[in-house]
Computed example of a mutant assay.
Amino acid sequence: MTSTDSPLSAPSTSPGDDAEPATKVRVRGLNAWFGTHQVLHEVSMDIPERQVTAVIGPSGCGKSTFIRCINRMHELVPGARMEGSIQLDGEDVYRERVDPVLLRRRVGMVFQKPNPFPSMSIRDNVLSGMRLTRRAIGAHGNAIVESALRQAALWDEVKDKLNEPGTSLSGGQQQRLCIARTLAVEPDVVLMDEPCSALDPIATARIEDLLHELRRHYTIIIVTHNLQQATRVSDRTGFFFTGELVEYDATDKLFTSPSDRRTEDYITGKFG
């Protein structure tokens, strides 16, 4: 495999508007540990392509560990391990010849707290993901930066100050800059771990509006404690509790007629 190869084969052709969406990520029998502490128990889940899937549940239930297993960030923690199968476009992301760095090019991550690189300009922040994943930039840098910032709904706000530090932006702008950095490498899947928890309501609304646009091109999995946010932005929702996937269904159905009492108790505020 050369450094420019994709870690997995190309994705399947997108279905028509009237067809059921294809499965982009298929998880089967996922178990995960930190040392001897098991944090996920036999999780199985099909994530449809070009939709937003929300992952909800109380703190410590395994939500973040679940998404970190998808792009193999879980294995970066000393003592962490997993068992089971995770497939991207039908191919196992944990098979031996998959380069985790190149996998993370296809499965990007946006973290809870905006984390632009403080020593880099806005422009270099956008391009940093490409450099980290060994993508050639060449003469296309300006076009890449503009395209990614436009997708992140940030271009008009920063186009005249691309050489200023990324940390000079507001919190909400920094988070959209981090989204642009993720999109610049042209991923198939975008993982978001509580991307709005550190933002004010106005910045949160901008991110939520952005998700509605991004779902047209990307498969998005978002971890959120905000149940109202899950109902606003997602097509499907999975409820995790004590490391188990209790229920997974269309968002409207899960929130209006859950099939498990634990789901109902959580969404009605009886615990959490």
Rank of each mutant, 00 (worst) to 15 (best):
I86L: 02
S44I: 02
T36W: 05
R104V: 01
F34Y: 15
G62I: 06
K24E: 11
A32W: 03
N71G: 08
Q51V: 00
E83D: 15
V101G: 03
A80S: 12
H74C: 05
A22K: 10
R81D: 05
G57R: 02
L40C: 00
E75I: 11
M82R: 14
G79L: 09
N71C: 09
D89I: 00
I47D: 05
G57P: 09
N71I: 04
E49F: 01
E49M: 10
E49G: 15
T65W: 09
E42I: 01
A80H: 11
G35E: 11
V93T: 01
R68A: 05
T53R: 09
E96I: 03
V25P: 05
G60D: 01
I47A: 13
V93E: 01
S44H: 10
S64I: 08
F66T: 00
D99V: 09
P21E: 03
G90A: 03
M45A: 10
Q87W: 06
S64Y: 12
L76W: 02
T53K: 13
S59K: 13
T53E: 09
V39C: 11
P100I: 02
S59F: 15
G35N: 13
I47L: 11
G35M: 14
D92H: 03
F66N: 07
L103H: 09
R72W: 08
E91G: 00
I86K: 12
R95N: 06
L30F: 05
E75Q: 03
P21Q: 02
R97P: 01
T65D: 07
I67A: 11
C61V: 09
D89L: 03
G62V: 07
P100T: 04
Y94F: 11
G90Q: 00
M73A: 04
G29Y: 03
R81F: 00
R104E: 04
V55H: 11
M73H: 00
T53F: 08
S64N: 14
T53M: 15
I47G: 11
Q87V: 04
R68P: 12
G29F: 02
Q51R: 15
R50V: 01
V43M: 07
P78K: 07
K63H: 09
V25G: 07
Q38A: 02
T36R: 10
L102M: 13
S85A: 11
T36K: 15
V27S: 09
L76I: 11
C69N: 14
H37D: 14
I67F: 12
V55W: 13
N71R: 10
V55M: 15
V25C: 04
V77L: 06
Y94W: 06
S44L: 08
V27R: 10
P78N: 03
P100S: 02
P48W: 11
I67V: 15
F66C: 01
A54T: 06
I56S: 13
R50E: 02
R72K: 13
A32C: 08
E96C: 04
G79Q: 06
E91Y: 00
L40K: 14
G60R: 10
E75A: 15
G90W: 02
T65M: 10
R50Q: 12
R68Q: 14
G62L: 03
Q87G: 00
P78V: 02
W33P: 05
V98S: 05
N71A: 13
I47E: 14
L102Q: 15
